[in-house]
Design a protein around this nucleic acid. Sequence first.
DNA 1: CCTCCACCGGAACGAGGGGCGC
DNA 2: GCGCCCCTCGTTCCGGTGGAGG
Length: 413
Amino acid sequence: MPDDGNDANGGTDPLFRVDSPIFTRKELLEIEHIPNEERIVGRDEQIKKVANALNPAIAGGSPRNMIVYGKTGTGKSLVAKHVTQRAKRAAENHGTTVGTAYIDCAQSNTETRAISTLATQLNDVGETEVKIPPTGIATDDYYARFWRILDARFDVAIIILDEIDKLGNDEILMQLSRAGEAGKLGSCKIGIIAISNKISYQDKLEQRVKSSLQEREFIFPPYDAEQLRLIMENREDAFKPDVLTSDVIPLSAAFAASEHGDARKALDILRHAGEIAEERDDERVREEHVRDARSLADVNRFRDLLQGQPTQAKLTVLAVAELTAARRESKIESNDIYDKYCELTTALDVNQLSQRRVYDLLREQAFLDILGQEFEGRGRARGSVMKFYLLEEPETVRQAIQRDAVFDQMNGE
DNA sequence: CCTCCACCGGAACGAGGGGCGC
DNA sequence: GCGCCCCTCGTTCCGGTGGAGG
């Protein structure tokens, strides 16, 4: 992309510009960007452990299954992808063919979708003559085709299941971990890397799957401020030289470290700071930009979370927001939320759902970290109540929610 | 001590919608 | 086009639980 500034014969309109005064390679600040190995910071030990578990695969043996825990932005996916790629290359030098697949269970969130995307990723129609329709066939059929593909193409398959707690049921784990013993597979071996950001996930696992997944269990700790600083410095060439003032990176690191040690957040703050500087026609990124970027990052994150939610789910969250604004107590009993919810639905003239359903919606919002959840009492007895609360300011929540078309008439009032 | 009663949460079920293979 | 398959949203029903109140 040529960027000679306001070159007239390029038809450049000064209102729009291709060249940025701040960024050179902005894509380096995307979390999806996989840095090459010398840029992976502070995860040496984790890389070694994962590699160790995969080691048997190099010579064509069974890799150990593992489950990786850690909060968002602690490098779980990064390390998993990185090590599997290296394992694949190392195996090739030994004449072993290794297939690798990565699925995000938040997107492929049912058994059928997950196995379907797995099969598609590892397939090569020219080689196997197996067709994988994206949908429409029975789940068993997907499995059957999947096993055929594996045996036809690979000695070992390493499968990364990211955000595995978002998966509806464990059946696919069961199938994958038992494929060899059940005689579904001939020669191919399977290794599973399961990734979850909720440690409580293991409680939900069925015993039969648990034993095979927990062969290896790793916990990724949050990054400390020093490591976050290094991560950002490694990607500093996303910016033009000398654009960052000296306190920008340390301050971003300190902000991100004070929350969860989340590298994604750190990079978001840094990127937003650059964008804010750009908008304000500043030549350099300064401390004040970082401070503004921090709150912007929070609001954006919450808006993104709510974006995909159906209207009914937003209504339940709105009910919590209204009650929080009206009371002192921030933790609201599920019954009160339902009453408020009913008020809202009649006021807006939308369909009113049953209490049972609303309760499920609330729990789902809590699972997605849109709401907080707290159980009071013991068992399921009378007197024990489930309470929900906001994780943001009521006003932020209201604004984010009222983008839904249904709420237009509310703004008219 | 016993019996309600209110609440959580699992499960079964169905409607409506969409896709594939033959 | 028909029969089969899957997904999402929702409802109804009910078992377990343990504090309140006789």
